[in-house]
Design a protein around this nucleic acid. Sequence first.
DNA 1: CCACAAAATTGGCGTTACTGCAATTTTGGT
DNA 2: ACCAAAATTGCAGTAACGCCAATTTTGTGG
Lengths: 211, 211
Amino acid sequence: MGEGLRERKKRETRERIADIAMGLFMAKGFDNVTVAEVARAADVSVNTVFNYFSTKEDLFADRQDLAVDHPVRVIREREQGESAVGAFRRDVLDAIATRHWRYGFNLGADVFARIVDASPALVARLREMHEQREQALTRALADELDADPDDLRPRLVAAHILTTTRLLTHYSVSRRLAGEQWESIEPDLRAQAEKAFDLLEPGLGDYGRRR
Amino acid sequence: MGEGLRERKKRETRERIADIAMGLFMAKGFDNVTVAEVARAADVSVNTVFNYFSTKEDLFADRQDLAVDHPVRVIREREQGESAVGAFRRDVLDAIATRHWRYGFNLGADVFARIVDASPALVARLREMHEQREQALTRALADELDADPDDLRPRLVAAHILTTTRLLTHYSVSRRLAGEQWESIEPDLRAQAEKAFDLLEPGLGDYGRRR
DNA sequence: CCACAAAATTGGCGTTACTGCAATTTTGGT
DNA sequence: ACCAAAATTGCAGTAACGCCAATTTTGTGG
């Protein structure tokens, strides 16, 4: 019974609306598309759109939201003897090597970036997602090391690490937006990543080391 | 002729509107006050309110915005032989000692915090201000050390420092919201501040040291 | 295959932030 | 007292949402 017919159709409708919306956003920019327009294009009522997505921004985010949990996984699945900073250094370098999208190192990331940059509402959404990641990672760190709730270190470590990944993403995306090819960005990006984590290592290097 | 009569009346009107708005926000919460309500209370038209403040959030921010430039001043006015991290450590500890509002260590900061926390729009505004501070501080650091624009370090240093101050503010405010007295918070806050900057010191300790 | 209850979709109406513009009032200086 | 500029206002409109009742669609038990 894995997925009833009803659930499947709901999922399909949801995806259809999101896809059509994304198409319009890419063509005209987020702020130049009204929800009514999306509804018309998807052949549903405005109310139905809001049934599936509680805000217009959710129409854009949808998939992106998956990435919120990723930092938590990186911590949970870190290797023996690996510190928190070390785990992220490895994960980021791996993402660069494989051009994985989880930090925006994939092809086509600049397309999304352009849309987001042009819309204050989406920029705000991005910041919100960053904070959610921070809180999730903070909890994960505090759990693993059962720190008492008064300890600021988990928060600080989480925030510093995510700041680092955020700025590395920004670095790569902005060179992308300037028209550069990935091949010319990659070596610099790799070097910047190493340097960025080197800044944290001496202070936070032992935090969360798994024995 | 320092300030014409016209300018003065404009400033007075602006302040009157902001004051009345703040009063309503404190009494009913940001989201439960409409701009029309503010306009009525201030005995002006809605359009006039929007003449002075381009968004409803600006009605609340107004003064708060002053604090955006503060980190830049801390860097510019740092002492001989003092690093960027060192300057902020000193500034934060000083703010704690004098209960200055610049990091939210003043009396009554919890009143504002309560209003902000209850309103998603204001929380978003706060995040935006944080990013403005980050960009301003990044520029100040890059200027002073004439780093080439491809260097991520000014960005990283600025972000890490402001992350630290942001979390220290959050620490103090949340204990405040839990009903604690400043006297019982202060010693812990001081200790947390030292520990927080100690995390950064080994990695960033020499950055921006003034000779 | 058919009726029926649950779920999905819709229409309609209301609220609120915010914009643009044209009309009107206020104001500082001559 | 008059005039041009500036401030204020009214009016009409747009778009994102919320609420609710009416209606259509759909899976399922008889």
